[in-house]
């Protein structure tokens, strides 16, 4: 019998970044017959992934407690030399020069070449980075029943038909005032009683929105004035941030129309990209929102 080999994925960044990294690891672990360990507790997500998601595929463990039972026997055979030498868990930092996550002590990148097979018993991929594959990362999971209920509760609080709008305005900024100006005169937004679900990380955006739109505006998130992204702020507890983020993803996906402007940096927010692609997969949304 061949010995089992593992891939530890610790995805960083916002929700889309995390899911893109998970998708990348799912694909590699399938190709090279590795058991995938998704551990989000020591990352920006900050909580056990299994609190929210149940895997639909085999050989995927997303419960930090189970992963922590496995790892002590695996560290010594990992591809990151300093971690293997130490034989214990590591702490990671973002390295601006190398544009990757590195071990805090030896500044060694915590990832590997995905185009090659590797012999190590444990491969570690601790990274961020966006793309359009986030929706594939999501398709490997079902939402847990309490999360389905809390999202359904928020959905029921909205009118049957509503438009979704996403504005990111914390660390990444959007020039939202002219956008509100343009949208407010758009024929769709002037329809009688058409509600808007405004997903945003910025309390300022929500406050200002009322001056532009005559339609009722809804937002169900816990917002505080922050200059940092919601996945890095310490001003809100992780269970609240993660619930709000996942609920917003599905509320925007279920909206009749979805609008997301580009940010000042010239690109779309990763979260908007994720919503856009998830809206193209209504069967996946239905399956995720249904209990097994």
């Amino acid at each position: 019998m061949t010995e089992r080999r593992y891939l530890l994925c610790r995805p960083e960044g916002g929700l889309n970044d995390q899911l893109v990294q998970i998708a990348k690891c799912i694909s590699y672990s399938r190709k090279h017959q590795r058991v995938l360990l998704i551990d989000t507790t020591p990352t920006g997500f900050g909580e056990n992934h299994s609190f929210y998601f149940t895997p639909k595929i085999n050989d995927l463990i997303n419960d930090t407690r189970k992963i922590n039972q496995l790892l002590p026997q695996l560290w010594a055979d990992s591809q990151v030399a300093s971690i293997a030498l130490q034989g214990t868990d590591y702490s990671a930092d973002w390295d601006e020069r190398q544009k990757t996550f590195v071990t805090s002590d030896k500044r060694e990148p915590i990832t590997f070449n995905f185009s090659l097979p590797h012999e190590n018993k444990l491969l570690i991929h601790h990274a961020c980075g966006g793309g359009v594959e986030g929706v594939d990362g999501l398709s490997a999971f079902r939402l847990n029943p309490p999360l389905i209920d809390l999202i359904s509760l928020r959905r029921r609080a909205l009118p049957e038909v509503y438009f979704g709008l996403h504005i990111r305005n914390t660390d990444y900024k959007t020039d939202f005032r002219p956008i509100f100006e343009r949208l407010s005169s758009h024929e769709l937004f002037t329809l009688d009683r058409m509600a808007i679900y405004l997903a945003t990380d910025s309390a300022e955006v929500l406050k200002v929105s009322g001056k532009y739109f005559s339609s009722p505006i809804f937002n169900f998130c816990h917002l505080v004035e922050v200059e940092r992204s919601l996945h890095t702020t310490r001003r809100l507890p992780k269970p609240v941030v993660n619930l709000d983020c996942l609920a917003d993803l599905f509320l925007l996906t279920m909206a009749k129309e979805f609008f997301a402007p580009k940010m000042i940096q010239g690109s779309y927010s990763g979260f908007s990209v994720l919503v856009h692609y998830l809206r193209q997969r209504p069967d996946q949304v239905r399956a995720m929102m249904t209990e097994s």
Partner: peptide, 13 residues
């Protein structure tokens, strides 16, 4: 707010 009121009342139910 509208958002709070509609959620407190489960969509006015």
């Amino acid at each position: 707010s509208n958002s709070d009121l509609t959620r407190f009342t489960d969509g006015f139910r």
